[in-house]
């Protein structure tokens, strides 16, 4: 099947066609761990404003793929071309300095465990302000103002700004991590199971918040999850992975409502109905 065709037929294709080239173009991305493969021959385009979900069981290579895309792991083959402000660049071959500059300006990474993405010994305001200071903000009042603004946007009370994340609940920590990542206005956000480890009512609120932010800021997102409800709510397009390979991709509703590949059928039918 050809994902491209579904995609051209979608209602939103109008605005996507306006963009001349994809924000992220991935070609033949392969990562091996010795004899085993992490992910193999993954190719896709991500267009500005699009949310791409990657689903699959544990060990299917989705986190490896995300790490390769975000530059945390060096892939063995393939290219990841990102549309930087200066034009398309292959992030696999660019220097580490450039890649890290991208990582703190145009990119953001939301970890599954907020402890991996936050500085637990630094106050909430300092956590949000770190990216601002990393790109050269040197006015305390302005940094604090932006931090307050973002805490409000992720529904954290302003009087918690000087508390450390340790004193926050799991859901608040995750929202703080999102604020910390979005404060510099990135264009591409990588999310690794952002709702994992949260209880369902907190998950629902977080998803609501994420959906609002994605739409409002026009973010492009690559979201890795094993929770089909999350991609149903957030993702425009879906990639299903098994054994390191992409077995099916297409519009989210199409894939979930009419799965073609045997594994996708199994995955969709495995969801518990309450």
């Amino acid at each position: 099947m050809n994902a491209r065709i579904f995609y051209e037929n979608s209602e939103t294709s109008q605005e996507f066609r306006c963009a001349e080239r994809p924000l992220l173009a991935v070609r033949g991305l392969t990562k091996r761990y010795g004899e085993r493969i992490g992910c193999a021959e993954v190719s896709f385009n991500l267009w500005p404003g699009e949310v791409l979900g990657i689903v699959g069981e544990s060990g299917s290579g989705k986190s490896t793929l995300l790490s390769c895309l975000a530059g945390h792991l060096a892939p063995d083959e393939g290219e990841v071309v990102f549309a930087t402000a200066e034009g398309p660049r292959d992030t696999v071959t660019m220097s580490e300095a450039e890649r890290r500059r991208l990582a703190r300006t145009d990119w953001a990474f939301v970890h599954q465990n907020p402890r991996d993405g936050l500085r637990m010994g630094v106050s909430a305001g300092g956590n949000v302000g770190e990216r601002l200071m990393a790109v050269g903000a040197r006015n305390y009042g302005a940094i604090r103002g932006r931090a307050l603004d973002w805490l409000e946007r992720v529904e954290i009370a302003a009087d918690r700004i000087d508390d450390r994340p340790r004193a926050f609940s799991g859901g608040m920590q995750q929202r703080l991590q999102i604020a910390r990542n979005l404060v510099t206005g990135p264009r591409l956000v990588f999310m690794d199971e952002p709702t994992g480890g949260l209880d369902v009512s907190v998950q629902a609120r977080l998803l609501d918040l994420l959906r609002g932010l994605v739409r409002e800021m026009g973010l492009s997102v690559i979201i890795v999850t094993h929770d089909l409800a999350v991609v149903r709510l957030l993702a425009d397009r879906l990639m299903v992975m098994k054994g390191g390979r992409v077995v099916e991709q297409g519009l989210t509703d199409q894939v979930l409502d009419d799965p073609r590949h045997a594994y996708t059928q199994l995955l969709v039918s495995s969801v518990l109905q309450v």
Partner: peptide
Amino acid sequence: LEEYGLMHVKLYEDIA
């Protein structure tokens, strides 16, 4: 890589 934003986080924490 001259990534010194973190140093200012320390000073930010001081002022906060």
